[in-house]
């Protein structure tokens, strides 16, 4: 009994302690702005502190409250609630992610099924995989430059899809290679057709691996969105961050970072719940 209680306490209390300590440390190193009346009667803001331009937690809360308490408000094009910006970003991430899965899953299957295919294309994949979204983005802009109004969106989708699909490709390939021979023997003994073997045996057997890939891909897709919005100027959380940086409103940058982190965390938890469901089903 006491043991159980202790665990629950720890699970709740320890993260809270960590949070408070982090906030304290943040407050300590952050800068303060104090208005000071000069000799000539003008009031000047004097900065002090360890990192003068880093806004502290309290200051961040005060300055960005309006984005948080009305998270879906739309006052102006560039003055919207933080979750509204996030929503725009999520929509584009969702589309790019879907493309990544639609392309990545069959590619992974081909890699897993055919040794020759794997020998041909695995080196290329390994070279393309570590390329940063910042490098892909200009290429995307160039490729879709003549697509008129949707050029920006297509470039963004291209970048997200290209960056996010690799974990799906590689994990699917590993999953296909890991299908137990026993299952394939069942298919052989029953003389299942190729399609039936694929849909009734291979895909279900690979599903847990595929979902690990899907989870990692989603993480990358979300990671890429900030870079994409900075470069294309599409409205969204990353674009908001960039604009506020240009406006010198550093508190908003902190807000955006926290929001992006939280959303990423929620997405990852959601996917890992799904993943676990599929794993337990198998």
């Amino acid at each position: 009994m006491t043991f159980l209680k202790k665990i629950q306490w720890d699970a709740l209390l320890m993260p809270l302690v960590g949070l408070v300590l982090t906030l304290l440390a943040w407050q300590l190193v952050s800068g303060r702005v104090t208005p000071q009346t000069q000799a000539d009667g003008t009031v000047e803001e004097v900065k002090s502190g360890l990192i003068q331009d880093l806004p502290g937690p309290l200051q961040t809360w005060e300055k960005t409250k309006k984005y948080i308490v009305e998270p879906f408000a739309k006052r102006e094009e560039l003055d919207q609630g933080v979750l509204r910006f996030t929503w725009y970003s999520l929509v584009i991430v969702g589309k790019g992610y879907a493309i990544a899965l639609i392309l990545g899953t069959p590619l992974g299957f081909l890699l897993g099924l055919s040794k020759n295919f794997s020998k041909m294309f695995d080196p290329i994949i390994q070279v393309l995989r570590p390329v940063s979204p910042l490098a892909w983005m200009p290429l995307g802009v160039v490729i879709f430059a003549n697509s008129g109004k949707s050029a920006n969106e297509l470039a963004a989708l291209f970048t997200i899809a290209v960056c996010a699909m690799w974990p799906t490709v590689l994990n699917t390939a590993v999953g296909v290679r890991a299908i137990p021979q026993d299952y394939l023997n069942v298919a052989r003994v029953l003389k299942l057709s190729r399609t039936k073997t694929l849909f009734r045996i291979m895909i279900p057997a690979t599903l847990p691996y595929m979902f690990t890939g899907y989870r990692l891909s989603l993480g990358i897709a979300w990671l890429v969105i900030v870079a994409v919005e900075m470069l294309t100027g599409r409205i969204g959380i990353g674009n908001f961050l960039w604009n506020e940086y240009n406006n010198g409103l550093y508190t908003s940058i902190v807000l955006c970072i926290l929001t992006i982190g939280l959303v990423g965390y929620v997405l990852d938890r959601g996917m890992s719940l799904l993943e676990r469901r599929f794993k337990s089903a198998v």
């Binding site: 052989r188 003994v189 003389k191 279900p204």
Partner: peptide, 15 residues
């Protein structure tokens, strides 16, 4: 192989 032979494997190999 073919389904004209019914095989019972050592482990049941159910899907």
């Amino acid at each position: 192989p073919g389904p004209d032979r019914g095989v019972v494997f050592q482990s049941p190999t159910l899907l």
